[in-house]
Amino acid sequence: MEAFTTHTGRAVPLRRSNVDTDQIIPAVWLKQVSRTGFDKGLFSAWREDPDFVLNRPEYQGASILIAGPDFGTGSSREHAVWALQQYGFRVVIAPRFGDIFRNNSTKMGLLPVVLPGDVVEKLQTRAEQEPAAEITVDLGAREVRAGDLVVPFEIDDYTRWRLMEGLDDIGLTLRHADDIAAYEQRRPGWLPTTV
């Protein structure tokens, strides 16, 4: 996983709530067996509209997405995270995220930032009025800075540490292989196996 410490970039305002993972990456794109090539599928139905915000020239190269509440609800498809990252996003800011999407994001190094609805609204307005203005998302300081606006965000210490170090979860868990083996000794014998 790519480490995340601090990121500065331009932002895209996506003024929609309940952006489910079917919109982020429609099912037809999920048939791929590789981890690459999902950038073309990002919001592919909405991108057919030339006026869709991602198609506008002023937002090309932006790396922070600012969305409405309940971003990433629905399907567990991690392809949604891959698509956002491969398109160039490093951060998604929203008032609330779908649980599985948020979890998938932190496994991949895409930073989901939860901010109150009124702050998100301010950041969206700023991105609309000044598309060239940059935002800094500082994970070390747990802070979003946009011009004069400085807002803190919450993230638990462990996830923050893992993101800042770019650590692989499986490697961390395998350090505790003895604990896993000990637990397996304690499991009741009647629990089912698939064989």
């Binding site: 995270v81 979890n103 998938n104 496994k107 979860d169 961390l172 868990t173 395998l174």
Partner: peptide, 18 residues
């Protein structure tokens, strides 16, 4: 509960999840 592909890999490798 549902999980993403990184977690699928994690469960395959360790039979656990953080």
């Amino acid at each position: 509960f549902g999980i993403g592909t990184s977690e699928v890999e994690h469960v395959l490798a360790t039979q656990t999840l953080p």
